[in-house]
Design a protein around this nucleic acid. Sequence first.
DNA 1: CCGGCGTGGCGTCAGCTGGC
DNA 2: GCCAGCTGACGCCACGCCGG
Length: 309
Amino acid sequence: MPGFGGKQLEMDGSIDDKSEDSPSSSGSSQPQNLSTVVHTITAVPTAIPNQPVQVQSVIQPTQQSVIQAAGQIQTVQVEEDGEGHLVRTDPDIEKRREILSRRPSYRKILNELSSAEAPGIAKIEEDKEEEAAITSIQTTIPSYVQTSAGQTIQIAAANQNELTTQGLQTITMTNAGQGAVTAAAMPAGTTIVQYTQGDGSQQFVTVPVSISPAGEVQAYQIRAPSSLPAGVVMATPTGITSPQQLAEESARKRELRLMKNRVAARECRKKKKEYVKCLENRVAVLEQQNKALIEELKQLKDLYCHKNE
DNA sequence: CCGGCGTGGCGTCAGCTGGC
DNA sequence: GCCAGCTGACGCCACGCCGG
């Protein structure tokens, strides 16, 4: 029987985890116009220490460009409700909602399975290591980004010891090749930051970046509130006053929400696949047990019959 | 070679759930 | 009660297979 300990389930069959297309492909770039910008970054590092973390950023991409880059084009039927909100219209949705009843989470089901039927199976628990360490990193950026394409932001750690011990060594923000990118859909001054963790997983974060007339990137803050999952950080601009900034902020929040949901959906699918594999393994084991029991019953019957004769 | 079909993966939305 | 996370549903795309 495979063990189910830890966050990752161990299964007989390997799950083909294809490397995912990132919404922002990393383009080769050259930093220009060196200056120093001080950032305050609080990040949740990976569980794997001493692994470099690469950060790639796309300066002011549009939602459309992100979708295009991911190879996904969506068309959704929508209608406007009375309050100016766009809502999806599907006549079957209501019926389905009535019919469908939700099931408990896979983790719950697996835990119930393991506790009730298979004492040898360890329960699935949250990865405590990932939750435990939250790093506060003071960094300086030796270079900055302009709105033109093909540039790189390099973030150097001011406290390398701290970074190393917390599993976050270097962050490289790379402006991707921006052939299809326009500055329309994403609010001005917003950057999508994509970074690869030590375990190979990719994370994204929207970062407000204001660029001075001289072409310098202004300081901004990135922090990781406790509510965010490991690896997801949130950037907070300071001093929002105008309605335009409010709109930008709400758009940024939406982007962040979508990103988190994207990651959550990915994790959910991964978990679901593991769950299905677990069930398949259990089926195989139970079939074997059933066979053995039938065989044993046969032998006992024969024995009993021969005794009576 | 090409079109149809099945399958798998992804992003997004919506609704439920559990923690605070 | 609010909020963040989880997950089913949906639509889309990519890919492989198969028959014509």
